[in-house]
Amino acid sequence: MYAQMVKSEATQDDPEKLAAFQQKIDANIKVEPRDWMPEGYRKTLIRQIGQHAHSEIVGQLPEGNWITRAPTLERKMILLAKVQDEAGHGLYLYAAAETLGVSRDELTEMLLDGRMKYSSIFNYPTLNWADIGAVGWLVDGAAIMNQVPLQRTSYGPYSRAMIRICKEESFHQRQGYDIMMKMAQGTEAQKQMAQDALNRLWYPSLMMFGPSDAASVHSEQSMGWKIKINSNDELRQKFVDQTVPQAKYLGLTVPDDNLTWNEDKGGWDYTDPDWTEFFDVLKGNGPCNTERLEARNKAWDDGAWVRDGLLAHAEKKRAAKTAAE
């Protein structure tokens, strides 16, 4: 989801070591940075955690788009705090990825030149203030749905990062829903904005869980290694079941004519997202892909002299301190 389409890497390790590793996984013993692990496991995790981190960073852009235009000072401060949290989440996740032997700058460069992905959802624009509510409610709601089970993922540093992040993520979802409530109960124009936001963000949110299980050929190994705990469709269904009543409470309509309660499965039947659009967005052809990567590249390039300057200053201070001793 935040790390979509992560392929489980093939592994060619000593079968004996591999079996011992699998035994450990099956016994729910967490894998720690200095433990032996299959090369495929390491690579898959670097991709997944790295892309998860990238998503947090790129995810600041659609919301940051509304900071200067937030309608009240209170909403503005809440949004600022939320975007700061996202930066922190990116930081925890990069730190977790680094325990696997890759550096944050290496990961950043792979994001910037398009070798690594980030979640498809952040390639959609935020066109009105209600979008900020919908992003908190739906996008962070989908994130929680995915991250709560990831707290039990087999790699220790990743699972601990998820525990920290989940605590803050529920704050994000609540603030989003709070915006939606205000808008949905406001004037007719505000209600229309809320409905419009839901119409545009519903399917992109469902896409966050990744392709349907039938098309997700790489899930099996990730589930075997307990990197992934639930299948894409399982989580998507859970998300729909949780979200539909929340939309009803707002008096808004979910943009899906086929939405029907299925008594037998105890859940909602819904229309799958347009997978052609999904794969297209992942390939870089979504509404904002170019803009998002340009913004990140510009920040990185324009900030180079600041990063170098701080390092040069730190070295100068260290040299002066050594000389004084």
């Binding site: 930081l91 730190a95 680094e98 990063r307 701080l310 200053h313 201070k317």
Partner: peptide
Amino acid sequence: KEWPLWEIFIRGQHGLSHRHVGSLHAPD
């Protein structure tokens, strides 16, 4: 050049000892 990695330890308000909470990159 990359900024070095730092490990962070924090003592909670009623905590008796510092606990490792994570890491971050910083120039100094």
